[in-house]
Computed example of a mutant assay.
Amino acid sequence: MNICVFCSAYSLDDRYSAPAAEFARLLGEGGHTLVWGGSNAGLMGLLADEVKAAGGKLVGIMVEMLKHKGYVGADELVMTADLAERKRELASRADAVVVLVGGLGTMDEVTEVLELKKHGMFEKPVVLLDTEGFYSGLRTQLERMDVEGFLPRPLADLVGFADTPAEVFELLKA
């Protein structure tokens, strides 16, 4: 499976990096391909290192202006002109999307995928790994949108929430 991962390009403390590393090991050991932002920085670089060490493949999709942060050793590294093209390319190559902890860029990526999915334009699984309750506020907001009629599809059809890396793969199989 080609698993697209949205996450931080910043180095984070162990409470966030350890679950990300465990997820990456499971991805690689499962023979899957990591499709990600292509960066060697922060959590993105950690993911790539762990996936590669566990035998998985790496497909990086980067914006040209960040090519100096490209992951050396990726099986494929694609350059795009801008962020919009990058997001389209990531989505088109994904069999599933997994969201780890991240900042504004991660939020931009996941909300775009959920909007596409809401309209039936992206029918692949989306799972958020809710490490340390990082996405509890987002989950609460999405649940409110669902209950109050702001979503044309049930929330469970749009996104799953996992508490552990192993649970991510259980949700992807379901």
Rank of each mutant, 00 (worst) to 15 (best):
P165V: 04
G160L: 04
R153P: 02
M121E: 15
V5E: 04
S92P: 01
V110L: 11
W36S: 07
G149H: 09
R25Q: 12
E123I: 05
M107W: 12
E115N: 11
F6T: 02
M65F: 15
M65N: 09
H68L: 08
E112S: 11
M121A: 15
H68E: 15
G103A: 13
E143S: 11
R153M: 11
I3E: 01
A156V: 11
V159H: 06
R88A: 12
G60K: 01
S39M: 12
G102R: 01
V59C: 09
A54W: 02
L27M: 14
K124D: 13
A94Q: 04
G160P: 00
G37E: 04
L43S: 03
P165I: 04
R139D: 01
L83C: 10
S11F: 09
D82E: 13
T164R: 00
Q141K: 06
G70P: 06
L128P: 00
K117I: 07
A41T: 11
L114N: 02
E64D: 15
K124N: 11
T33D: 06
A54P: 06
F6I: 09
F122P: 03
R86D: 04
L12Y: 08
Y71K: 15
G102E: 01
D49C: 08
R144A: 14
L104Y: 14
A84R: 14
E143M: 12
L12V: 15
I61R: 00
A54G: 09
L58E: 08
Y71W: 14
A18G: 02
P152V: 10
G149D: 09
L46Q: 05
G105K: 10
M145Y: 14
I61Y: 00
L116I: 03
A24C: 12
A18W: 06
P19F: 05
F6V: 07
R15A: 13
M145K: 06
A156Q: 14
W36Q: 02
V159E: 07
L26F: 08
N2R: 14
D82N: 15
V72Q: 15
L138Y: 06
G102C: 08
